[in-house]
């Protein structure tokens, strides 16, 4: 986990986490995570439930104060220079509500304005993002009435509206139907082609294999493996490697015999 090549670029890696620690009561959720995400990469953060993915990403984006360690975005410290760092990051958190009494269009525009955009700029970008994500027809409906997939898409639009250079997406494909997922992938591809960097967490290994060029495996609040997709999966599939690393073994044995229908 040394300095990656991208560190020579102005401002350093897109995201650099050093010894991040978070404790909840007596439980250590994140136990000294080090992570370097080079500019221009799409990095997948994979790990079992409770591995500390969401906690790590929250601390990396300024939503949760770490108990120790640093987080830097393109060289700006998220916790000592938050305004500069947050200007560069777009966030899609998992399981946090949106201001859902706004219509989709209002929500995206307001988010842009919160980032300091002028109203006409934010408004034009909101229209464009909703159109690209297939939400133009529902732009005037309240977000509270959206389906789960539509909510993810409008949240992605909010993460993009201020033209960030790093996107941090927590479970962007959860509860998303294939059509919406395709729309999201397309937007991510365009974002990356424009020089952006993406960090996303997911349970779905095939998706990570398809989208990401770098993978970080997290479990028990620690980084178990990190590198390019090829390095991490080393010959096998990512799923096999992941189960091996995260310590999944069969508990089935001889149980459930009564489930046989013949």
């Amino acid at each position: 986990m040394g300095e990656s090549g991208a560190a020579e670029q102005t401002g350093g890696p897109a995201l650099e986490l050093r010894r991040l620690v978070k404790r909840f009561g007596g439980r250590t959720a994140v136990d000294g995570v080090d992570l370097v995400v080079p500019v221009g990469s799409v990095t997948g953060l994979v790990g079992p439930n409770g591995a500390g993915k969401t906690t790590t990403l929250s601390m990396a984006t300024g939503l949760l104060r770490p108990d120790g360690g640093t987080a830097r975005v393109l060289g700006r410290d998220v916790w000592s220079d938050p305004v500069a760092a947050k200007r560069l990051v777009g966030v899609l958190p998992d399981g946090l509500r949106l201001f859902d009494r706004l219509s989709g269009r209002e929500l995206v525009r307001t988010t842009g304005q919160l980032h300091g955009l002028r109203r006409d700029v934010a408004s034009a970008r909101a229209d464009e993002l909703l159109a690209v994500l297939g939400l133009a027809a529902q732009g005037e409906e309240l977000v509270v009435d959206y389906s789960a997939g539509m909510t993810k898409k409008v949240a992605l639009a909010c993460a993009l509206v201020h033209a960030p250079r790093l996107l941090v997406l927590d479970e962007p494909f959860e509860a998303v139907d294939p059509v919406s997922a395709a729309a999201i992938r397309e937007v991510l591809a365009r974002f990356r082609a424009g020089g952006g960097t993406v960090v996303l967490s997911s349970h779905v290994m095939e998706l990570v294999e398809r989208l990401c060029d770098r993978v970080v495996v997290v479990a028990g609040g620690r980084v178990l493996a990190e590198g390019t997709l090829e390095e991490v999966r080393g010959g096998g599939t990512l799923e096999e490697r992941f189960v091996e690393l995260a310590g999944g073994t069969s508990h089935l044995g001889e149980g459930l015999a009564w489930l046989r229908s013949s």
């Binding site: 760092a85 990051v89 958190p93 201001f99 859902d100 988010t111 919160l114 980032h115």
Partner: peptide, 15 residues
């Protein structure tokens, strides 16, 4: 009353 939606202010770095 904002509830968890308050994160939007945080993520946007609203003063």
């Amino acid at each position: 009353l904002d509830g968890p939606a308050f994160w939007s202010h945080l993520a946007a770095g609203v003063r």
